Amino acid sequence: MKLLTDLVSIPSPSGNTNEVITFVERFLSELKIETKRNRKGGLIATIEGKDQSRHRMLTAHVDTLGAMVKEIKSNGRLKIDLIGGFKFNSIEGEYCQIETSSCKKYTGTILMHQTSVHVYKDAGKAERNQENMEIRIDEKVHNADDIRALGIEVGDFVSFDPRVEITPSGFIKSRHLDDKASVALLLQLMKQIKTENITLPYTTHFLISNNEEIGYGGNSNITPETVEYLAVDMGAMGDGQSTDEYTVSICVKDASGPYHYGLRKNLVALAEENQIKYKLDIYPFYGSDASAAIRAGHDIVHGLIGPGIDSSHAFERTHQSSLENTAKLLFHYIQSELVL
């Protein structure tokens, strides 16, 4: 829980992830796990196994939704352009941080331009879109020149306050559980492997990708020896979905098509053999790093599992039991035989 809290508290919208990648790098360095960065800025950790001729790769992404400064408005506020797939209404009233190219940081709030009901008669009817929403900066500014004097310019990154909270009943409420919950799980898994001196059956790579929210985080740096590629990402909840906040979700199909049938059956068998609570599900408007790798042409067996997350790409929540069930399945999976 502490690790997850630390991760979601580090701003890392897609395109600006160096700080959180450095955090992960230091965590793994302390465990004496070999890592390297790829040119896109993602991090790859490798743990050698008995069989070095066939490899596994697991991935989770550390980049999050966010925004960029689109326009400096004459009223001293900022128009934004979204990073990732979400709607403007999900960030209305959210505290945020603007980071300039010189690394200065300013706070603000994302609001409708027509927020005050004492001034705007139809405030509740106005559309939540790029034209109507803006950032109110917590600085004494009156116009565009005042904004630029702070060093703020078009293209500066905007991150959202996660508002992370762990409740006595075991719920974790926070933005960016997609996919930092899974990153925390993989880091804990690697720590367990090292501290318990577990010998893996196959050399296993762990890719902490940093561009998943924009579609191409995990489709490179897959070794030719890699047979299985498992993405660890959130299970999406909603009407018609099986996924909940208490089990591990095993994806059978998303917008890219079915996941590998043999790997899916192996994951289900491992869950049943080890009394792990799981749900099978289809995510209709979803793509993962595993599906991105398939689209890129890699000849791999691909799968997708993860904790169930409520209100994805908005005010997210999961439960500790979902994390525990996902962790157990990952632990048994990395010690299992390949399906091919």
Rank of each mutant, 00 (worst) to 15 (best):
A314N: 11
K79A: 15
H298N: 10
V301I: 11
H113T: 12
E134V: 08
I309S: 07
Q241M: 13
D6V: 01
T109M: 14
R39E: 14
N221L: 07
G218K: 08
S53I: 07
I10Q: 02
C96Y: 01
K32P: 00
Q320R: 13
K36E: 15
I276H: 04
I276Y: 03
I152H: 08
I208E: 07
I334T: 07
L58Q: 02
L187W: 00
I334C: 13
P11I: 00
G238M: 09
E272P: 02
Y202F: 10
I305N: 04
K104P: 04
H205K: 14
N75K: 12
N16T: 08
R264K: 15
A236V: 15
K2F: 00
E165V: 09
S288N: 04
V24S: 01
N274G: 10
T46V: 15
T203C: 00
A144Y: 08
D138E: 14
K265M: 15
S322P: 03
D122I: 00
S12T: 07
G235Y: 06
S311R: 10
D244G: 03
I152C: 02
K140G: 05
M1F: 04
F171V: 00
G306A: 07
T5S: 12
M234R: 09
E134D: 12
I300L: 09
I80Q: 03
T22D: 15
Q275F: 06
Q97A: 06
L230W: 12
G108Y: 04
T326Q: 04
L329I: 12
A255N: 11
S249D: 08
I33F: 03
M57G: 06
N89L: 14
L185R: 05
L58H: 03
K173R: 12
P201M: 03
I276T: 05
P284Q: 07
L186F: 02
E213W: 01
M133C: 11
H332V: 09
D281V: 11
M112A: 02
A181I: 01
V119G: 05
Y246M: 03
V183K: 05
I193T: 13
Q192M: 14
L82N: 10
D254H: 03
N129P: 10
N219S: 12
S174W: 01
T318Q: 04
N221P: 06
S159C: 07
H118T: 04
I166Q: 14
F160S: 07
L263A: 04
T115H: 13
G297Y: 05
A292H: 02
A327S: 14
A149H: 13
G257V: 04
P224H: 10
L267A: 06
L4V: 01
I305R: 02
T100P: 10
L263R: 10
